[in-house]
Simulated assay, not measured.
Amino acid sequence: MSGLPSGVDGIIRAIFAYEFEDRDVVDEVVIGAIRSGEFGEYLDTVGSSGMFTPSVVDTIGTAWSRDPELLVDALLDGVRVGG
Results as ranks from 00 to 15, higher is better:
residue 59 T to N: 13
residue 74 A to F: 01
residue 1 M to Q: 02
residue 58 D to E: 14
residue 49 S to N: 03
residue 74 A to Q: 01
residue 57 V to F: 00
residue 44 D to M: 07
residue 45 T to C: 02
residue 51 M to K: 09
residue 18 Y to C: 04
residue 38 E to S: 06
residue 68 P to T: 04
residue 67 D to G: 00
residue 65 S to A: 11
residue 35 R to P: 02
residue 83 G to I: 02
residue 46 V to N: 05
residue 17 A to S: 13
residue 35 R to Y: 01
residue 22 D to M: 09
residue 65 S to H: 12
residue 58 D to A: 15
residue 44 D to S: 08
residue 53 T to L: 13
residue 17 A to L: 05
residue 76 L to E: 08
residue 26 V to C: 10
residue 15 I to H: 10
residue 34 I to W: 14
residue 28 E to T: 03
residue 21 E to L: 00
residue 30 V to T: 06
residue 76 L to Q: 11
residue 42 Y to W: 08
residue 58 D to C: 09
residue 11 I to H: 08
residue 22 D to W: 11
residue 68 P to N: 09
residue 82 G to P: 05
residue 69 E to H: 06
residue 54 P to Y: 02
residue 80 R to Y: 04
residue 49 S to L: 05
residue 79 V to T: 11
residue 26 V to T: 11
residue 3 G to Q: 12
residue 5 P to I: 02
residue 22 D to E: 15
residue 83 G to K: 10
residue 22 D to T: 15
residue 20 F to H: 14
residue 61 G to Y: 01
residue 70 L to K: 12
residue 13 R to S: 09
residue 48 S to G: 05
residue 45 T to A: 01
residue 42 Y to C: 08
residue 45 T to W: 00
residue 52 F to A: 04
residue 16 F to K: 04
residue 83 G to N: 07
residue 13 R to W: 06
residue 53 T to N: 10
residue 79 V to F: 03
residue 60 I to V: 11
residue 17 A to D: 04
residue 21 E to V: 00
residue 28 E to S: 13
residue 58 D to W: 10
residue 71 L to F: 07
residue 35 R to K: 06
residue 78 G to V: 12
residue 50 G to H: 13
residue 56 V to L: 01
residue 37 G to T: 05
residue 67 D to I: 00
residue 62 T to D: 13
residue 47 G to M: 05
residue 38 E to R: 02
residue 31 I to P: 14
residue 15 I to W: 15
residue 50 G to V: 11
residue 74 A to E: 00
residue 16 F to D: 08
residue 3 G to W: 13
residue 1 M to H: 05
residue 6 S to V: 13
residue 53 T to G: 12
residue 64 W to L: 15
residue 39 F to E: 04
residue 58 D to R: 14
residue 27 D to G: 05
residue 44 D to I: 03
residue 13 R to Y: 06
residue 66 R to N: 07
residue 21 E to K: 03
residue 24 D to I: 02
residue 57 V to K: 01
residue 81 V to H: 08
residue 62 T to G: 09
residue 3 G to E: 11
residue 36 S to K: 11
residue 4 L to P: 12
residue 63 A to F: 10
residue 31 I to A: 14
residue 74 A to L: 01
residue 59 T to W: 01
